[in-house]
Design a binder for these strands. Structure first.
Lengths: 203, 203
DNA sequence: ACCTGAACACCGTTCAAGT
DNA sequence: ACCTGAACACCGTTCAAGT
């Protein structure tokens, strides 16, 4: 066939298709993307830096829903809390993408910019330089960990008769639907309380 | 060839080999296991419930290093803290296994038993039934999220010249080696403080 | 520059055939 | 019961060839 007059493919369409596949299946493959776009597998590689490049495009796409304005709130702990909630909401919209994104290093420029701003916020609030990354990583663990829970099958635990776990079953039932959201609230409240007391105690 | 006099394979050896591969590469494949054990790929399937079955054997193996005695400590918050530390240490010994284990539901009986005991501990401490799972999930997020950080490449963020992030770079340098450990301490302290105040406020 | 078509080395899984 | 050897449908990636 050769080169078409107008390109059949672009990064935007590849990203959209990959995200659709991830939302449906929790994963994607390059041949699957090509098939949906009516194109040969090899063609995708002309627009994208391999499979890892597509993962990074997905990170940009999902993170684009984080509201950067949250980091302008005052005081600092209101900003951190609003950012964490916006961050979590963005990933909660595509929970099945989280395992994919958690296990590869962040290269996406827009995501790095967000972290740069978060670091600045905490430094300006008066945190010691050495304390900033542990706080941000702890928050990230909280946000992504709890959003990951959203991606998990109905229950993250498969209870069978072979291993009797009556109290675990009861506790799961008692927690109900909001289980994951409440775990996030618990973690976030704990995080913020600790951060405030760290700042009060420190120089 | 047919059946050998004494079996060439068993679950123990398959698990050990899979864990070696995961420690080295962050992943494993059934053909890789077979090759290391000098056997055909198909033979592995006679001992194990497919690839997912091997993942579940890995979970049992890694979790076996969690000290169950930690859950007997008093008061309850000392037990929770000791359990969390032991839990994290077990996974920190095989950080590259964490992505594999976080993204599939828990079926392993011994791991389910641990959760059953943790639920019992919190109920006996006086927590409301509906509060128990959110707390445990928050703690699990904290433990696995921070242990996952150990598995990540040197830095979880790839800083390049194209996106200037000077403060992020400084904060990473200032945090130094113990970055991940300190993030865990921050999160754990926050979690315990919040759990204590929840219990004090509740019925 | 962009797509095709074919190739390569890898997966997970199944299964008849042998002992 | 347990292993072989071959098969099947899938991967990610590369690349000459065409327009």
């Amino acid at each position: 066939m050769g080169r078409p007059r107008t390109p059949l493919l672009d990064r935007e369409r590849i990203t959209t298709t990959a995200l659709q596949l991830v939302d449906e299946q929790g994963d994607f493959s390059v041949p699957q993307i090509a098939k949906r776009l009516g194109v040969q597998t090899g063609s995708v590689y002309h627009h994208v830096d391999g499979r890892d490049g597509i993962v990074e495009l997905l990170r940009e796409r999902v993170a684009a829903a984080i509201d950067p304005g949250t980091l302008d709130a005052t005081p600092w702990d209101a900003a951190v809390e609003a950012w964490a909630r916006s961050y979590r909401a963005a990933f909660a919209a595509h929970p099945k993408a989280i395992p994919l994104l958690m296990t590869s290093p962040v290269r996406a420029p827009r995501v790095l910019e967000q972290y740069e701003r978060a670091v600045t916020l905490l430094l300006d609030a008066g945190f010691a330089p050495g304390d900033v990354m542990p706080l941000i990583i702890a928050l990230e663990n909280l946000v992504l960990g709890s959003a990951l829970d959203l991606a998990a099958p109905e229950t993250m635990w498969v209870l069978t008769e072979t291993t009797p776990t009556p109290r675990l079953a009861e506790a799961l039932a008692a927690a109900g639907e909001g289980r994951t959201n409440r775990a996030f609230e618990v973690g976030l409240a704990g995080f913020l309380a600790h951060a405030r007391s760290t700042l009060a105690a420190g120089g």
